[in-house]
Amino acid sequence: MTLMENRSAAIPAPREITTKPRRSDQIFRAVVTLGGMSSLVILGLIALFLSIKGFNVLKVEQLSFITESKWEVLQDGEGKIAESTFGLAAMLIGTFLSAFIAVIVGVPIAVLSALYLTFYARGSVKKFLVSLIDLMAAFPSLLFGFWGFIVLMGSAEYWAKLLNKYLGFIPLFDVPAPIFERSPFIAGIVLAIMIIPIVTAISREIFDQTPLDRIQAAYALGASKLSMIRAVVIPYGRGGVVGGAMLGLGRAMGETVAVYTVLNVVYQINWQVLFGAGGNVASLILLKFGEAGPEEVDALMAAGLVLFLLTLVVNAISDILINTFGKKGR
């Protein structure tokens, strides 16, 4: 009798099972979701407020804001603004030019370095090199700029003269006057040095994800390192490496301080990369901001908006490439 009583006491009453979270969890989920949306909110606000501030200028200039290359504020006798024209084209060209030089110089070095780190370096040497390059990625751009100005300028000027001497017949390497200091070419090299650690890190991660069985299979078939890399690693990692290069391009396009210190920022279209004049959008903003009146500030906001959208697009493409090729492979 006592046994039966005990048993019925041991079996609890059946209860409802629900998947509805408790109050505390509902609050928790709401708070975390709200916090998770912050990046969306911030990016949205950036686009919104730069557009609001830049709206007046963009409305007046319309498409010529990015196609014309004239940035002038004319004042009358009383210091009032008589006429102003804002066209960003020269600086947009400068942005692309220096960023492309950075990618052309930097990416091959970065990818080969990544190959070295993944397939040649071993043990503690590899560990040391990897942390050294990661550390370099954390150096502030101010440091790169000053180093470029004080240390690199001399050598880079010498390389520029060499290029001009032997390849001067190509319009790109021609100069109107023998001024080789502070040219887009040197700015491009500084930017290349800045993006090398970033592109190396991403390429190395991509190469590390190459399936080991395919590498082993290639070696088992008698492949040398070169043919293994050509047959397995490159096809597997191509997209990711291109994504890494795009990320480097984005960084190079948005760089301000390094370009400002190295480059002689002059508002003109300059295709001749060895000649000491040029600029990019970010350095223009920094240069003009100090003495800008309200209207010019609006124009600079619009320039910031253009730069923001440009880097956003480049970053988006790179992110898609890295994620589709990096994680799953082919």
Partner: peptide, 10 residues
């Protein structure tokens, strides 16, 4: 990811 690419001057 996109936010980490926002240029510092922006």
């Amino acid at each position: 990811q996109a936010m980490s690419g926002v240029p510092s001057i922006v």
